[in-house]
């Protein structure tokens, strides 16, 4: 009786969960499917879910009409570049706070977090004017610098929570065994710290890939990443749903796939270690 009952409730919850999750996922699925339709089919009523003539025409046109790969490459440079540069600064900082924590460490961490709360519009004009005067508007260098700075607090926090879990005794033991600082870092610390660093890198690439304030304001054509490229579709001319879908699919596919691999890191990184 009770087994039968729990089976029934399992089926019920499964059905409910699949229904809701499909509804949540539906806009993405719909975009994906529409990208393979002709423009006429994309707005046909009744809409067809799967049964239409699949075509790759939209992808061909999107790539032909706009330099899609350049925008893609810009996104890669901005997100990966800023994340690597950020690591270079955040790893030593987090390391030092995790292993040489003083009374001030907690305050410094909180202060770093508070810089994240500075609204971008508060510094919009100075940054815009500085970029204009330095010739950094619409340049990848400028965006990499900005993206590094805005993600630095999250990177430092995230690395800090990882490093904090490395037992300090390991260091002492290796020192007792006569390891030099170089050996200590290379053979003892790097292997333990690497997973945390990789997770931080992954999460920050995702965040930078999707950042849509500075990338929209500071770029025009040359350095525009995918966020800005898609924004150019906001004023439609004629039939364009299928092409919008194709462009959107191209813009989000790589990061959704990366994202699925980073579920756990995401929780930990974005909750500042509060939830693991």
């Amino acid at each position: 009786m009770s087994i039968k009952n729990s089976n029934r409730s399992k089926l019920f919850y499964t059905g409910l969960a699949w229904l809701i999750s499909t509804a949540i996922f539906f806009p993405i699925l719909w975009t994906f499917l529409t990208s393979f339709k002709t423009e006429a089919e994309a707005i046909s009523a009744p809409p067809s879910l799967f049964f239409f003539d699949w075509t790759l025409e939209n992808y061909r046109e999107v790539m032909e009409r706009s330099p899609y790969f350049r925008h893609f490459w810009n996104s890669v440079v901005i997100s990966v570049g800023s994340s690597l540069l950020g690591l270079l600064i955040a790893v030593p900082a987090a390391w030092s706070m995790a292993f040489n924590s003083t009374k001030r460490t907690k305050n410094i961490l909180m202060w770093m977090l508070s810089t994240k709360m500075l609204p971008p519009v508060g510094v919009l004009i100075p940054i815009y004017l500085l970029f204009r005067d330095l010739g950094l508007l619409d340049s990848l260098t400028g965006l990499v610098v900005i993206m590094t700075l805005i993600n630095l607090p999250i990177m430092t926090w995230m690395l800090y929570t990882y490093f904090k879990e490395i037992p300090g005794e390991i260091l002492e033991a290796s020192r007792m065994d006569g390891a030099t600082i170089g050996e200590e870092i290379l053979y003892v610390l790097a292997p333990i710290a690497l997973p945390g660093i990789a997770s931080t890198l992954l999460l920050n690439i995702i965040l930078a890939w999707n950042e849509a304030f500075w990338t929209l304001i500071l770029t025009a054509a040359k350095a525009a990443p995918l966020t800005a490229f898609i924004a150019s579709y906001s004023s439609p001319e004629g039939l364009f749903y299928a092409k919008l879908s194709a462009a959107s699919t191209l813009a989000i596919a790589p990061i959704i796939i990366l994202g699925w691999f980073s579920q756990k890191q995401l929780v930990r990184g974005l909750s500042f270690g509060a939830v693991k």
Binding site: S21, P27, A212, L216, S234, S248, I252, I255
Partner: peptide, 20 residues
Amino acid sequence: MVLAPFFVMPTVSALVWKNM
């Protein structure tokens, strides 16, 4: 499936919802 929308960039999700 539930997690996927988080990875969609804001400009894409806004335009998809607006138009489609």
